[in-house]
Computed example of a mutant assay.
Amino acid sequence: MLSNFDAPVLSPGFAAVPPGHIAAIVTSLEMVEPPALRDAKPFPDGTVLHRLVRPDGETYRRLYRVVGADWLWFSRLTLGDEVLRAILDDPRVEILALRREGADLGLLELDFRQPDTCELAFLGLVPEALGQGLGRTLIHAAIERAWSRPIRRFWVHTCTFDHPGALGFYRRSGFTPCAVEVEIAPDPRLTGILPRTCAAHVPLLA
């Protein structure tokens, strides 16, 4: 999902979503100073956060899909190879894989391309890694890495396609809601970007 604070303002009432599209409510959250990480815990033994330096496109897309498919992450999958390559090669974008014994468990992506700002572009775990407390440790690592740079704002956005606990998770982590938007996009399950079996919690209206 992409955030655009200059998007047109919607009028009150209902609006029809075009056939073959999906609509999500997107909440942006921010912090303007590092929070106190009182309950921070280290990753379990054998679990490490590994920096991916200029990963090839297919390696990145594979990790992105396995982490985000059930939450309808699709923005990176719609990018052409050259556009994606420019992001992956940019030293101001940090891409990290959470790994255990060589297996990928999660993705963390921090985007420092805007001056004085870090965007928590992506943070997520593979389905089998959920419920182990890894998300809490991963967000703490994200906060520490972001504020180790001379930034003034750290922000993230989540939407109604994400895990139902995502908004509360970010608020408990020190983020404060700052904007709400509605995004309408072609359903990636109908365009072939993602399998039709993904995101059973989101109605598929062919």
Score class of each variant (00 low, 15 high):
residue 65 R to G: 09
residue 57 G to S: 12
residue 2 L to E: 11
residue 190 L to K: 00
residue 139 I to E: 04
residue 23 A to Q: 09
residue 32 V to R: 14
residue 143 I to G: 05
residue 106 G to N: 04
residue 162 D to Q: 01
residue 3 S to P: 05
residue 58 E to L: 11
residue 29 L to P: 00
residue 20 G to S: 04
residue 94 E to G: 12
residue 75 S to Y: 12
residue 177 P to V: 05
residue 128 E to K: 00
residue 82 E to T: 08
residue 92 R to S: 14
residue 69 A to N: 03
residue 92 R to M: 07
residue 26 V to H: 07
residue 49 L to N: 00
residue 32 V to Y: 12
residue 110 L to M: 07
residue 95 I to P: 04
residue 198 C to H: 08
residue 71 W to F: 11
residue 118 C to K: 01
residue 206 A to S: 14
residue 145 R to E: 15
residue 65 R to D: 12
residue 9 V to A: 05
residue 149 R to T: 06
residue 119 E to P: 03
residue 167 L to K: 01
residue 196 R to T: 10
residue 64 Y to A: 05
residue 196 R to V: 07
residue 148 S to Q: 15
residue 96 L to W: 12
residue 123 L to P: 01
residue 171 R to E: 15
residue 172 R to V: 11
residue 9 V to N: 01
residue 5 F to P: 03
residue 132 Q to I: 02
residue 84 L to F: 10
residue 147 W to C: 08
residue 181 E to D: 14
residue 69 A to F: 02
residue 200 A to M: 09
residue 47 T to P: 05
residue 77 L to D: 14
residue 96 L to I: 04
residue 123 L to I: 11
residue 68 G to R: 03
residue 165 G to Q: 09
residue 29 L to A: 15
residue 144 E to F: 07
residue 61 R to H: 15
residue 167 L to V: 02
residue 7 A to Y: 01
residue 130 L to T: 07
residue 47 T to N: 06
residue 72 L to W: 11
residue 187 D to L: 09
residue 12 P to C: 08
residue 136 R to T: 00
residue 158 T to L: 12
residue 206 A to H: 10
residue 144 E to T: 08
residue 205 L to F: 08
residue 20 G to F: 12
residue 84 L to R: 03
residue 147 W to I: 03
residue 87 I to R: 11
residue 163 H to W: 11
residue 91 P to F: 13
residue 58 E to M: 09
residue 117 T to P: 00
residue 41 K to V: 12
residue 127 P to N: 06
residue 177 P to W: 10
residue 82 E to W: 05
residue 186 P to N: 01
residue 79 L to N: 05
residue 89 D to V: 04
residue 154 F to M: 02
residue 36 A to F: 06
residue 177 P to H: 14
residue 177 P to I: 08
residue 14 F to E: 13
residue 8 P to D: 10
residue 136 R to M: 05
residue 28 S to N: 06
residue 27 T to D: 05
residue 108 L to Q: 08
residue 33 E to S: 07
residue 135 G to V: 06
residue 88 L to Y: 01
residue 19 P to W: 10
residue 106 G to L: 02
